[in-house]
Each structure stands twice: as C-alpha cells, then as structure tokens.
Write a protein that binds this DNA or RNA. Structure first.
Length: 527
RNA sequence: GGCGGCGUAGCCAAGUGGUAAGGCAGAGGUCUGCAAAACCUUAAUCACCGGUUCGACUCCGGUCGCCGCCUCCA
C-alpha cells in the first residue's frame, strides 16, 4: 500500500488511483526565463522518482510536467535585452531540457508548453465566464474569487482574512482585490507572444495554464499534483479554483516538496543565492547530486552547500564500493569451504522489505537509502568474516546483493557509474565487473589491429610471466589492467615485494587504485 | 497579523507510544609484506515547560528559536 502525504488534507493517505492501476501525475515545471537552479531541480527529481517507484510497484504512470513559456517575466527579460519573448523562451526551454537531462533521470512523459495550450485555456476561461466565476473587464478576464466558496481549501486561508491582509493592490477593472487575472489584455506596444481571444488580443494569466494542461493531459479528477511548497498559494489554490469552478474536479492528492535553502534562506532568484543546476553538475556527477537530494525527505527543507555535496559524494562512493565488492567477490569467490551466508541472506531480505516499505511510506527515500547502506555494511562484514576464516564467498548470495543494490538504486534513478567516472564526464549505466579482468569493456575500445591477444589468464595459467610482463604496459595504456593484475598476483605470491610495489605504482600512474584481496588484485579506476 | 512546517549525537538525517536507522567528520583498534578498501569500538536524557499514559522523543497544551507562504518564486 502506497501512502502519500496530501497537502489538501494534511495527512498521509493511501493512494487510490482514479483508474485502477493507473496514476496520473502533474508537476509544476519551470517558467523559462533563466537557467534552472538547484531548487528548481528538486521537484523534477522528486516526481521522477515517484513515477519510477509507482512504476516499480506495477502502476502505469503518466507524468506531466509543464514548461511555462508564456509569462510576464519572460516578457520583462525580453524587453530588458531587446529580444523577443519567443526567443527567450526557446533558449531557456532548451537549456532546461539540457540541464535536467544531465541528472540522468528519465524525462517526464509529457512536457507541454503553455504556448501550445492556448485554445484549451481560452475554452476554460469561457466556461468560467458562462458560469459566472469570471468576468471580462477592459480586455482582461478576472476570476471572481468570492464566487468559489472553497477558495483557500488547499492553503488553509480564509477569503476574509486574505482580504484583510492582502498586499495585492486593487487594480482598475477588478471587482475585488483578491480576484486574479485568467486572461490579460495586451498592453499597448506589445506585439509578441500575444493571442487573439474573444476579449481581444492578450495572453493567459499566470495560473490558468496549469489548470488547462493538467485537465488536458490527465482529465478531471486526476490523481496527483505536485510542485514546490511555495506554489501552494496562490498558484495551486488558483489552479483548483479555476478548474473546479468550471465544474471540473481537479487533482485529488497534492504533494509539495520543501524548499532548497542556501545560507538559511530559500534559494531564489529574487534573493540572489542561487546555484545553477548546470554549475553543480559541472562539479559533481549526477548520482551524487541525486544522493544529495534523496538523503533528505522530499517535504523537508534542504540546505545547499558544497560540503553537503562532498558528503553525498562520499556516501555515493560507499554504495559504489559495496556494489563493486559484491561483484568482484562473486566473480572471485576464492578457495575453500563456502562461508555460511545466513546473516547476509537475512540482511538481504531485510533490506529488500524495508526499502520498499520506506518508499511506500510517502516516498521516504532517506530511510530507503539507509537500508541500502545497512546492507552494504553486512556485505562488508560477510566478506571480512569469509576472508578471516579462509573460506570462499557464496557467489549466489553476493550476486543477489549486487542485484538488489543496483535495482533499488535504479528505483532512485541513481546510476552505478564506472568508478573512473565518478566525475562529471561519466556515462551512466556502466557497471564494472571489478575482477582482475574487469576492464574488458575498456580494452574493447583499444584496437588490437586484428591481432588476437593471448588472454592474460592463459598466459598466467601457463606461467608465461615474461610474455605477460611484456604486454602489461601496452594493455595498461589501453585501460586494461588485466595483465598487470595477474602479474602482480604472481609477484606477490613469490613475495617479490619490490616488483609488486613497482607494478602497483605503474597501475596508479595509469589511473587505478589497487586493492589486495585474498581473491587476487582488485583494481578500481579513479577519476 | 493569518496559514503551514521545522527544532533528533560535531555536522547531516530517518524513525517509533515501550528506552533512538543511516551518511559524513573525529579518536582508538583489527586485518594487510606495505598500502588501499573494509571491519570493530567510541558519542544524544530526541529545543524547553507542563499534561495524558503503566510508559512519550513519539499524543495534547504552552514557551522559545528557525523557516516557508500570504507579492514573482520549484
């Protein structure tokens, strides 16, 4: 059973989709007048992971995330730069897609543009006018807030109190200061980014595009609507009013992510404490940024700092180490009796169950990740105990551990990067086998001029150490440490410490970190 | 002023009516030819004050502090 905290009711509720087995999610995306910052990226990540988890749970999910490309701020920027609003919107829409793509998180299923939803918006405005919930005035159309008794149900505000405290200035043409524009008449001199309507040339008000797009793609009474907490009022409140006053039930569950802060204050363009997503991704690999996001519950505020990213990186590397170790030891179990994996098996079951339970419980990614770390510790303990006893590792269990870790991390959209790639240039998805012969994938990239190389393992088996040694540097230059590892195993077995150390130095120079294990030399690529 | 949230070890952060996951950092130790990685040990009367309860960090009330929204904002 999936439970989600619903801002509308202020409590966790069981997810009961409108249509059996299907979940529709609408999340508020950016207004494109600048590069997105880390704060903008949080909902992008949160709702992508919600979709991933619901999908893993067997639901058929549609995630709609709008791009608001019609907005006063876009026009303001265009004016300031002497450019067209269309050009500004196009530039930053592309930048948004480029930047968020780098997170390595699957894109939303639909990313509608406000500018492509104008007919639906006009239609909705017409319905509101017909039903008496909106009125035209001087070419603009306003929503009559007092005509909608439920106004304030999401934000917990009462209309009368809003009226008393409102800082909204009375605009000419408004019946009530609380009323808000659903359609804005073109100002004199404006030419771009305008559409014809029954009320003359103009553009939609800020909130209505989301009502229209949500209804268009997910239909009335859709399941989940998400966005940042700061959007609760007035944006989401108004979305509800516009849709429901028109007789169309809106979202049933509202999810709001907490704000990212910097220096104790909300990260916001207006505060000037923003860190652009692209800047962060230039310094930290995508999975590290995801760990940073996901080790705090999505509803809590999250402080941004480079130190926290560094901690996330260390945490990520521990997970990578666990996956790498499970993989390497599964491939190189060692000799002797198989060490009893009962405790590791228990940890595996525990992690599998608890991970899912945490995710089911309002997307508790922090708790879920904790389970993975716990499994990692049990894995390391098992390996340690196995080595201490001079036993062999249980291959099947280790493979199960690796599979579970990778699968769970995949649910969190956290890719296990090739360790050499724990740097921004990394390619997601590569999994290193970890064994002495682990770098086969890299070796493939290195042409051999059609000449089949003698497999390192065969040379070693035949004790042709000189032949092996001759190939070490050549293969190392191709990123293949296989030969070096096997030669080093030989040197260490012969207690040739000088030779073994020298070879380690060469491996390090080639970008590898070297670890001696009872099962042989393990190398790890370092970025 | 109204609405909402938060306050858990040095830092970050889960969580539960029955004596507190995990990550980072620190200290000591183990393993190792030396390393690396890992493991072990080590730290919290869960902001404060009351109340309910056999028992609360977890429920209720109050206080203090911090944050968000009420204006554009993910």
């Amino acid at each position: 059973m999936i439970r989600l905290f619903n801002s509308l009711t202020q409590r966790k509720e069981e997810l009961v989709p409108r249509d059996d087995g299907k979940v529709g999610i609408y999340a508020c995306g950016p207004t494109v007048y600048n590069f997105v910052h880390v704060g903008n990226a949080r909902p992008y990540v949160v709702f992508a992971i919600l979709r991933a988890w619901l999908t893993a749970r067997g639901y058929q999910v549609v995630l709609v995330e709008n791009i608001t490309d019609v907005n006063d701020k876009i026009n303001a920027k265009a004016d300031a730069e002497g450019r067209s609003p269309v050009a500004i919107a196009a530039e930053f829409t592309q930048a948004y897609v480029d930047d968020t793509d780098r997170l390595g998180v699957p894109r939303p299923d639909v990313e509608p543009l406000a500018s492509e939803t104008i007919p639906e918006i006009i239609d909705l405005v017409c319905q509101l006018i017909v039903s008496g919930h909106a009125y035209e005035s001087q070419g603009s159309v306003y929503f009559r807030v007092r005509s909608f008794p439920e106004y304030g149900k999401l934000s917990g505000q009462r209309i009368d109190e809003l009226a008393e405290e409102t800082r909204v200035e009375a605009e000419p043409g408004k019946e009530d200061p609380l009323d808000f524009a659903v359609w804005k008449a073109a100002k004199s001199g404006e030419r771009d980014h305008l559409w014809e309507s029954p009320w003359g040339s103009g553009r939609p008000g800020w909130h209505i595009e989301c009502s229209a797009m949500g209804l268009r793609y997910l239909g009335a009474g859709f399941d989940i609507h998400g966005g940042g907490r700061d959007l609760i009022f007035p944006h989401h409140e108004n979305e509800i009013a516009q849709a429901e006053a028109a007789g169309l039930p809106f979202a049933r569950v509202w999810m709001h992510n907490g704000m990212i802060r910097a220096g104790g204050e909300k990260m916001a363009k207006s505060v000037g404490n923003i860190f652009l997503l692209r800047e962060v991704l230039d310094r930290y690999a995508a999975p590290v940024v995801l760990i940073y996001f996901l080790t705090t519950h999505y509803r809590s505020p999250l402080e941004f700092s480079l130190e926290k990213l560094d901690e996330a990186k260390a945490a990520y590397e521990r997970l990578v180490e666990a996956v790498r170790t499970a993989s390497f030891r599964a491939d190189n179990p060692g000799r002797g009796d198989v060490h009893d994996p009962v405790s590791l098996r228990a940890a595996l079951d525990q992690a599998r169950t608890a991970f899912a339970a945490h995710m089911d419980d309002d997307l508790n990614t922090a708790g879920a990740l904790g389970e993975l770390f716990g499994l990692g510790r049990e894995l390391f303990r098992y390996i340690g105990a196995t080595d201490a006893a001079g036993h062999a590792a249980d291959t099947a269990t280790l493979e199960d551990v690796e599979d579970l870790l990778v699968e769970c991390l995949d649910n969190l959209c956290i890719a296990m990067l090739d360790e050499g790639s724990v740097s921004p240039a990394g390619t997601p998805g590569a999994r290193q086998a970890g064994a002495s012969g682990a770098t086969a994938t890299d070796g493939e990239a290195c042409a051999t001029d059609g000449m089949p190389l003698p497999p390192a393992a065969r040379l070693a088996a035949e004790s042709r150490w000189n032949d092996l040694a001759e190939l070490v540097d050549e293969r190392l230059s191709c990123g293949d440490a296989t030969y070096a590892c096997l030669l080093r195993d030989h040197l260490r077995a012969a207690k040739d410490w000088t030779g073994a150390d020298a070879l380690r130095d060469r491996l390090v120079a080639a970008g590898f970190e070297v670890r001696d294990t009872p099962a042989g030399t393990q190398v790890v690529r370092k970025g």
